[in-house]
C-alpha cells in the first residue's frame, strides 16, 4: 500500500516538475544560453536516472534481445504473418520520415522544408514550445523509467497476463511466438508489468 502511495507521489512530483520546467523553458528562445544549458542538463539528468534506475532491472540482456530480433526476422521471412507485416509498416514509416527529411536537408530549398523547420513554426511561440517541451520531457521519463522490473519480489507475478504487462504487449508476443526459445534471455523470469512510471 505504501509502495502504491509513494509511487503515485513520485509520479505526481515528476509530472509537476516537468510541467513547471516546460512552462519556464517555453519562454527561452532557442538561441539563448539558458535554453542550451537547461536542455543539456535535462538530457543528462534523464540519462543518469535511466542508468541508475535500470541497473539489474532490464527484462532481457541486450544480446538475447538482438538474437530475438534476428529470429523474428528470419521467421517472418520464411513464414510471413500479419503481425510481422504490421511491424514492417512501422519500419516503412520510419524510413519514409528519415529519407524525406534527409532529402529535404540535403537540397536546402524553400520548396523542401525539413520536419524540424515545420515544427519550428510552432516552437517559436511560447505555448507551442512549452507544450512540445512538456511532451518531450514526459516521453523521456517514460523511456528512462518505463518497463523496469521492481527490485526484489515482482508484484505482478500473481496477476493475469493482461494485467501484469505481457498481455498488452503484442509485439513481444510476436517476438516470442513460434520460436519457443525466445525467453532464454530473460534474466529473472517473464514479468515486466511493474513499471516505475
Amino acid at each position: 500500500m505504501s509502495n502504491v502511495v509513494s509511487r503515485k507521489v513520485r509520479l505526481l512530483l515528476l509530472g509537476a516538475s516537468s510541467v513547471a520546467f516546460a512552462a519556464w523553458e517555453g519562454g527561452k528562445p532557442y538561441t539563448t544560453t539558458d535554453a542550451h544549458v537547461s536542455v543539456a542538463v535535462v538530457i543528462a539528468v534523464v540519462v543518469l536516472v535511466a542508468l541508475y534506475s535500470g541497473r539489474h532491472r532490464q527484462e532481457m540482456k541486450s544480446l538475447a534481445w538482438l538474437k530475438g530480433m534476428g529470429r523474428s526476422i528470419r521467421r517472418y521471412l520464411s513464414n510471413p504473418d500479419v503481425q510481422g507485416t504490421g511491424a514492417l509498416v512501422w519500419l516503412v514509416f520510419f524510413m519514409a520520415y528519415f529519407g524525406w527529411d534527409l532529402n529535404s536537408f540535403l537540397h536546402q530549398q524553400r520548396d523542401l522544408p525539413t520536419l524540424s523547420y515545420l515544427i519550428g513554426r510552432v516552437t517559436r511561440y511560447y505555448t507551442g514550445r512549452s507544450v512540445l517541451v512538456a511532451g518531450w520531457l514526459l516521453g523521456g521519463w517514460y523511456l528512462a523509467l518505463g518497463l523496469l522490473q521492481t527490485r526484489g519480489a515482482r508484484l505482478g507475478d500473481d496477476l493475469p497476463a493482461d494485467v501484469s504487462g505481457h498481455g498488452g504487449d503484442n509485439l513481444a508476443q510476436w517476438d516470442s511466438g513460434g520460436g519457443g526459445d525466445s525467453g532464454g534471455g530473460v534474466e529473472q523470469g517473464g514479468n515486466v508489468g511493474d513499471e516505475t512510471v
Binding site: W65, L66, G168
Partner: peptide, 14 residues
C-alpha cells in the same frame, strides 16, 4: 506503444 515497449525490454533498445 507496443513498438516502444519492445525496445524498452533491453538496455540496447532503451
Amino acid at each position: 506503444v507496443a513498438i516502444v515497449r519492445h525496445f524498452l525490454h533491453s538496455w540496447i533498445g532503451r
